[in-house]
Design a protein around this nucleic acid. Structure first.
Lengths: 220, 220
DNA sequence: ACCTGAACACCGTTCAAGT
DNA sequence: ACCTGAACACCGTTCAAGT
């Protein structure tokens, strides 16, 4: 029986299976997808011509598609509120499949859903009157906060495995903070820090601003 | 000739080879190490009993060992300067082998060099008079900034591949910011944002501070 | 003690079949 | 058009050798 009457596979079915395997085992394989779907691994190549790379790209597109920006685009909320929503939505989408994070990084972004997300961020920064020459840097900072926080969410708890009293300062911090969620409050603080930083930056450039160096001190 | 007169392998030689392969091909394999060293892959297991996992752990230890904290521990510089040095040193060490980042995340930290790094960060925050209950959150934020920035440094340039005028805001930001380095200025801004945030937090808790909610607004 | 070589179960991918 | 099955080069790992 080389060809069943009802179709066993489709691009959608394959991607669903890949996400299931990632959720369950923090990784996926072509052979694993085949096993999971009761199908010969080679069959998958009739639906995904680009092999595993194409699956990874499609997964990123899927994960990022969950980020709904419609409410941000036309809204007349202050930019601070928009930026917070952007960061939380992005963080939530990435953290939903934390095991996929290593698959997402280090690749050029060329799919429309992802580009739209960053275009939205750039628009928010423009609305906040961040100088165009600084927008890329601020985007990098915001992106780092969101992605780093998602990685933190994907990390084991406890993150540090300490012996008795070798690391006193760290030990105290862990003991005092173990009640609340380290990851969530880290994101909360990151959001507030980013907003305050942008406010301060735009205040500076609004006042006078050629000789002043409040915002960026010397390195080192 | 099953045993050469001069030793071909050692834990050190194996780890060096792994780092070389990571630098060259963004990844490493046991077999690849064997080929690189002109040795049978199975020989490696006489030096690394824990297999590939142990190699990954040892690599993280090595990468983090490059972070020199001696100058921070006893220094009497202000905490702002220490925090900046901490973040830059950490970022630099991680970004030196960007391809190893996926190998570093998602594992519990239990080696002394890495624990010492985070203990140092906790000590800096304590010196800055960050309340103990908040230190873990601030550490999470700082860690996210550093790691996210390192990931950004490992990402391709350009990070976004856009068609003509589909993403106007993003396109303008890229055009205006392409002169400077997006990653570096992102880290610079992140450092400044973190410092300002901590300053504001400690000012708040120094003043009065039970009913006020300046620092953490409501979510969403 | 240190390395080889064969062996095993796995992986991604291709390609000639079968219906 | 859709799936199977054999095949290939690779991977991590084990284990019985050899010196």
């Amino acid at each position: 029986m080389a060809r069943p009457r009802t179709q066993l596979l489709s691009r959608e079915i394959i991607l669903d299976a890949a996400l299931e395997l990632i959720s369950a085992h923090r990784d996926f394989t072509i052979n694993g997808i085949g096993r999971h779907l009761g199908v010969n691994p080679s069959s998958i190549y009739h639906h995904i011509t680009g092999g595993k790379d194409e699956i990874v790209d499609a997964l990123r597109e899927r994960i990022y598609q969950d980020i709904r920006l419609g409410s941000l685009r036309g809204s007349n909320r202050p930019w601070q509120s928009k930026l917070e929503s952007w960061m939380r939505a992005y963080r939530e989408a990435v953290a939903r499949y934390p095991a996929a994070i290593p698959l997402l990084i280090g690749r050029t972004v060329d799919d429309l859903p992802t580009l739209a997300i960053y275009d939205c961020l750039a628009a928010i920064l423009a609305e906040a009157k961040v100088p165009e020459s600084r927008q890329l840097g601020v985007m990098s900072m915001v992106d780092a906060l969101v992605f780093g926080s998602a990685i933190d969410a994907a990390s084991p708890d406890p993150l540090w495995s300490m012996g008795a009293d070798q690391q006193p300062a760290l030990h105290r911090a862990v003991a005092a903070g173990s009640g609340s969620n380290r990851v969530l409050s880290g994101l909360d603080m990151g959001i507030q820090a980013a907003i305050s930083f942008i406010e301060r930056m735009t205040e500076d450039s609004a006042n006078a601003g050629q000789g002043r160096r409040d915002v960026l001190p010397d390195a080192g």
